[in-house]
Simulated assay, not measured.
Amino acid sequence: MNAPTDTASPLLRLPGAVAADPTGPDAGVAAHYGDPMREQRTLAETVGLVDRSNRGVLQVPGADRLSWLHTLGSQHLERVDAPTGSELLLLSPHGHIEHHAVLAEFDQAVWLDTEPGAAGALLDFLTSMRFLLRVEPTDVTAGYAVVSLVGPDAPAALARLGVPELGPARVAAVPPAQFATGAVPPAPTSTFPVVALPGGGFARRMPDFGDAAVIDLVLPRPALAELPERLAVPVAGSWAYEALRVAAGRPRFGLDTDHRTIPAEGGLLASAVHLDKGCYRGQETVARVHNLGRPPRRTVLLHLDGIGEQLPAPGTPVLRDDRQVGVVGSAARHYELGPVTLALVKQNVPADAALRIGDANAAIDPDL
């Protein structure tokens, strides 16, 4: 998935900026600004601004927008009180994840932001499902950008824009298998507070990365250039953001999922799936796997011994006794943990299994 080519970020022109690999998932933004380990520590201990403006942004106005998305996707959206955010999956008939979006009901529209390069396919799908409903899905990536404030001091930095403090994001616990009908409240399983920004757009509080708060800002692209100065925070690159995300065990669609991934495998069940909603494509698979309690694979955090200089690429096999038992997703060098990666491994792989990825030894993190 490559970034849009007509939305070059002005934050790439800041001193020290080193662009991310143009063939990689974060093309179009800075990988770092000269010192990625220091930038990680800044995000973990104070606050920094991360350019994520290569993400796609869709807007869905129209009177039927919430009920329409409710019937299409995995999240319960009929009773959303604006402004608020959540997450949504669109599945294949067999329950495989085809699209993932973070959403916000704001200013008489649902806003959906997606992985770089994924907005076009998502828009095509939504457009094909309009029928006669009052909805108007539109790609607004050229006009709006996503950036993230990350760190314990992120709420204080946001306050410099003169907006109210956002409370924490909330993600409901996954109910047990064979739970009673009606046990899950008829509301989104994840709720992300949203507030309007002066000059247009909104801020949305996301689940934390450990002790680091995460606040997404979706705002007009012309506002990007002056944003670091207005917030009075340093910038940090995608490498720093990704390292904290991986260490927090937060999967990323398209990197930590593949064409066979179902929600219970990909670590997206709590934040993006309402298990008592029913009546959406792929729901039968979701319900059956949850009730059986054993999805074929699971997402784990692996610690690598650091022998090799190169991080494993997404798709690299995870081996146990020379037999493939999984596949690598996102990999990063964490400023404290060293090299780590998320991986999809078979359900029957023991938590203490000795694993290998290329020439490196790997061990499953028991605390994730």
Rank of each mutant, 00 (worst) to 15 (best):
D276L: 07
H259A: 15
L217F: 06
H32P: 08
G151E: 11
H99C: 07
D51R: 09
P176L: 10
L132K: 12
A30E: 09
D64T: 02
E226F: 00
R55N: 12
Q310T: 14
H32T: 01
M206T: 01
L244I: 02
I357V: 15
V60L: 14
E284D: 14
S92I: 02
D26I: 01
P137E: 04
D124W: 00
Q283T: 03
E309P: 00
S148V: 08
R298A: 09
G199A: 10
G167E: 09
L197S: 11
P25H: 11
G62Y: 07
D258F: 04
G282R: 07
P93C: 12
D208N: 15
P296H: 10
R65N: 12
G182F: 07
D113T: 04
E78A: 14
R221H: 07
E265Y: 03
A154D: 09
L355T: 02
T7K: 07
R160P: 08
V235G: 04
V318N: 12
V246N: 04
V345M: 11
L14G: 02
P198Y: 09
M37I: 04
H70P: 09
T114H: 08
H94W: 02
D51W: 04
Y241G: 08
V349D: 10
L224H: 07
P61G: 09
L355R: 07
D305L: 10
T46W: 02
S190N: 05
L342N: 10
A212S: 15
R41C: 01
A101R: 05
V233Q: 03
V184Q: 07
A63Y: 04
S190M: 11
L126M: 11
G120A: 15
A172D: 15
A360N: 15
E45M: 11
G85A: 05
P317F: 09
L132V: 11
